[in-house]
Design a protein around this nucleic acid. Structure first.
Lengths: 189, 189
DNA sequence: TTGACATATATACTTTTGATATATATACTT
DNA sequence: AAGTATATATATCAAAAGTATATATGTCAA
């Protein structure tokens, strides 16, 4: 349950309510990591019960009441312990576009090019936003800034790869691709 | 439910049993995408009920009985439909090391360097393996090979970033990092 | 011969995601 | 002035995905 500790980490900087936690999380992580309200609210509730955070309701006229959470000494302790522990498990990457990409050989080349072009536009937009965000990251500590840089590097790498792939797909004779990819090899062993 | 379609895609190439699906999935995806048995076996069972695949038991003396699955015409149809549909959602990245990384400012610089070094070793091992695998990917179609190349590129990018980060962390005065990162700003708004 | 590693299937459990509902504030557009 | 879109804010839940583990055999090497 790593999200819990990420939340405790953010609460070291300042008191926050659920909505703000989502924002800070994504910015802090160089726009690489996202979090979901379905994780935030149940975790805040649980952590309050465990005494890791305390809740302070901020009533505002008109707008819904804010629930501001603060980290407790017990929360800081739990976080420090986690930070010292060894990270286990490896990087997980999941992308709906990439999942289709490997199977493009079963479809037409035109459709493949169309989706790749769409993806190129998407990553170009992302890249522009990331470059803007670099200013924000530069005001943060070393590690947060480095995360922002990683986000930028990965974005650039993927974009270059997409463009290179596009060239190769456009160059390739559609028929050849299809035949090779559709080949039904016998089951070995 | 994208894993289901990835499995149907693999079954286009050849008949497979659960264990083999996991292997092929990871290789097909340039070692970028992993799948686990908790998804494979329940999905195979469900897809059999839906008539998307058929099961053939292969009894072997000594070793456990293999359950070989084949894709049906209905399965091919469901897959083709999915392939034509638009991918929705963006890339998701989840890494236990990176989650700790952004909070290294709350710990010691020595511990940060130690974990970064560990990660560098890990990615160097991965990189060597990926380069070996390039031969396998070259025998596949364009799209599978391109996925392998993306895996390689991302690995190289991350490794370079880790080394660059290490240099910067080593260069920085530990105290300064800590002070900046621990600064407790007031809640805006 | 013991231990490590690959093969192979299976499931209980936990976590995460995606979708949806509600309601106000603010900024822009026609 | 009315309409529209977007941002703020909290919350819930089913479905999907992921972790961890149990079982059992085969092979190879220390």
């Amino acid at each position: 349950m790593s999200v819990k500790y990420a939340m405790l980490g953010l609460l070291h900087y300042r008191d926050m309510h659920g909505y703000r936690i989502k924002q800070h999380m994504e910015q802090h992580f160089g726009n690489l990591w996202s979090i979901n309200y379905g994780q935030i609210y149940p975790n805040l509730k649980k952590m309050e019960e465990e005494g890791l955070v305390t809740k302070k309701e901020v009533v505002r006229s008109g707008a819904p009441t804010r629930k501001l959470y603060s980290i407790t000494p017990a929360g800081r302790e739990a976080f420090a312990e986690w930070l010292l522990s060894d990270p286990h498990g490896t990087m997980l990457l999941r992308d709906p576009f990439l999942l289709r990409f490997v199977f493009f050989g079963f479809g037409t080349r035109e459709r493949a090019l169309q989706l790749v072009d769409e993806q190129i536009r998407l990553y170009e937009t992302h890249l522009a936003k990331r470059r803007e965000n670099m200013r924000r990251w530069h005001r943060q500590g070393v590690y947060v800034r480095q995360m922002g840089e990683l986000g930028l590097l990965l974005n650039e790498t993927i974009l270059e790869w997409l463009k290179q792939s596009r060239r190769e797909i456009a160059r390739s004779r559609g028929e050849e691709v299809l035949r090779a990819e559709r080949m039904n090899l016998p089951l070995e062993s």
